[in-house]
Design a protein around this nucleic acid. Structure first.
Lengths: 343, 343
DNA sequence: GTTAGCACTCACTTGAGGAGAGTGCTAATA
DNA sequence: TATTAGCACTCTCCTCAAGTGAGTGCTAAC
């Protein structure tokens, strides 16, 4: 489906205008405002063509035109000119990221804040997922009265902890020994490499505590596959400024959706393309956001995907801006994390 | 300010009715629906009195009456009959809490979910704050290339972690030694007891690593006073069902508020009474929720406050129900945590 | 002290009319 | 042949007036 230059120009202008005003765009306004050099009548003819091709829609007979999802898609793929962030915005990101952070969760939170602030849409950040990563360290800590805490440190600096019951006759020294033996065997290994052979070796060294070790291995397994990816959501109130969310019903649906962490994780993990993904309206797999667009990207350490960020807004979205914000922040986030956990 | 029996009856009926219908209550309906045994005219007279006393308000001259904040306060203090949770609801709580949980954050999350589900308002839970608590364990874990992670385990099972730079010549064994020495000295002590004497002793034993130890002590201090209380928010979409939130502006204000974690923490920590606190409308310190009511309570371990839960809804709230939900869940939460960390 | 009756108030609904923005079609023009 | 001016038509939205209904306050009777 290839469009001639004038059609492109007109489609571009319509989308541009609609994004800015949220009002159906008429031929007269368009011709005047965008200096198209042709009369409204000509524009009308072109618009009728574009509508027939599926790029535009008409809310009702005597209204202007509105871009269809299809139209937005064409815009994003062919018409939109990428915008760079303003110097002041870059500066803001730089300042936010350069102050010394001590925990991964802080970085995540700041990214989310920046994301929503710069894009003025809702932001979502999934914190590094522990899956498919290396074990760094485990540690048993006695918590008194027959209980212990198992600390599991995974490679990009993720810490998980689990409580466990202890057999009555165990001493703190025992815990320390077990920690050391298990550490010696497993630390640095990929979760998937935690094969039976290693486990057997541990059993062999810790015969006395066989059942305890089994429990520990289970808990390690459990924490490494933990779905408890923390999600940062922010700036939801931002999108309430958009006229498409003037309807409380819609807001309710959206909020209900956003509260379902697993669902959000799922949506964010299904990114087909490398780099920035744009899902427009019905391209979203989830019904509740069929009239939203989502711009998402993965961030990585050493080229390995460890989490995602996304921006959610109405289909009538400032695509160019949102895309560059997501792009810029993902790059920066990857960089900051790499610096934190260079290895 | 004492009311005769009939006035009490009428005030009670008005509030009851308004809570149920969200419509201003008229004399006719009231007299009929609640079998007051007097004519609408009499009810009107009483209503006029109650209005003069400040318990009722009139949206406009020819409308029915609506309870004022003052009226709700009287209702909560004197008129409301406490409701007990239904067996099925208790069962739900029991089931949710009895399945084995491995982390404190799971319990928090479930509590929040139950809170919003049972009350059908928005729920907030502040996770255990590390402040004023005992140190259980610290552990240094090498993260490669001159970096280490400091794990700090605090008494009720809170885990914090911090990244730190290491001097280049340090070995893993050094880290282990330092961990052990510091642990031996400080574990079990209250944060406030971490006086200079102890720190001097540690310095004495670890002369070679003096500056590193100083950094560690700082980070321990930092994590114990960490404001990073995690907040669980849930069921916000619930309150969008209430007619008072049909206005998108209000929703926006509320969402904006709820995203400010520190603010929420602040609001939740200012509970004057032991047990369940009820803040009605303008009794709330924060302007943005001047037309909401908040029911909150602290949960504890060993009688010590370690966090709070709250329910937020319109002033036209099912107080009796909400109060009993908060009460029941706080008690259960305290119990579960005590069981998890019995000491 | 209670009640019936009555005039009055005020929000909300309904429907008609008009304004305005925009369209599609046709015929004239370059 | 492509473009444009002109025009009738469509449809939403705003406004305004009239009518409806729930509720009130006051007064006089019980």
């Amino acid at each position: 489906m290839t469009l001639d230059e004038r059609k492109k120009r007109i489609l571009w202008a319509i989308i541009q205008d609609f994004i800015a005003t949220a009002e159906p765009v008429g031929s007269r306004t368009l011709a005047r405002k965008y200096n198209l050099g042709v009369s409204p009548a000509t524009v009308r003819n072109e618009m009728a063509d574009l509508e027939e091709m599926g790029f535009l829609e008409q809310p009702h007979t005597s209204a202007g035109r509105v871009p269809s999802h299809h139209g937005y898609r064409y815009y994003v793929d062919h018409l939109m000119q990428p915008t760079e962030l303003a110097e002041s915005e870059k500066e803001l990101v730089r300042v936010s990221f350069e102050t010394k952070v001590k925990m991964i969760s802080e970085v995540i939170q700041r990214t989310g804040q920046l994301l929503s602030q710069l894009s003025s849409y809702a932001a979502m950040v999934v914190s590094p997922c522990a899956n498919r990563t290396r074990l760094r360290h485990i540690q048993l800590v006695s918590m008194g009265r027959g209980q212990a805490m198992l600390l599991v440190v995974l490679e990009p600096g993720i810490v998980q902890h689990r409580m466990m019951e202890l057999p009555p006759d165990l001493t703190s020294a025992d815990l320390e020994t077990i920690s050391q033996v298990v550490n010696a065997k497993i630390s640095g290994s990929q979760m998937s490499e935690l094969k039976l052979t290693i486990i057997r070796e541990i059993y062999a060294e810790l015969l006395r505590h066989k059942s305890l070790v089994a429990m520990i291995m289970d808990l390690i397994e459990d924490s490494s596959r933990s779905k408890e990816d923390r999600i940062y959501l922010g700036g939801i109130f931002n999108i309430l400024n958009e006229p498409e969310f003037n309807n409380v019903e819609k807001v309710k649906t959206l909020l209900g959706l956003l509260e379902q962490e697993e669902l959000i994780c799922g949506i964010l993990s299904e990114q087909d393309q490398p780099g920035v993904n744009v899902r427009i309206g019905s391209e979203n797999s989830c019904d509740d956001i069929k009239d939203c667009s989502m711009i998402s990207a993965n961030y990585e350490i050493d080229g390995q995907r460890i989490g995602s960020v996304a921006v959610l807004g109405p289909t009538r979205m400032q695509y160019a801006k949102a895309i560059s914000v997501v792009e810029y922040l993902t790059a920066n986030l990857s960089e900051v994390l790499a610096k934190m956990y260079r290895s």
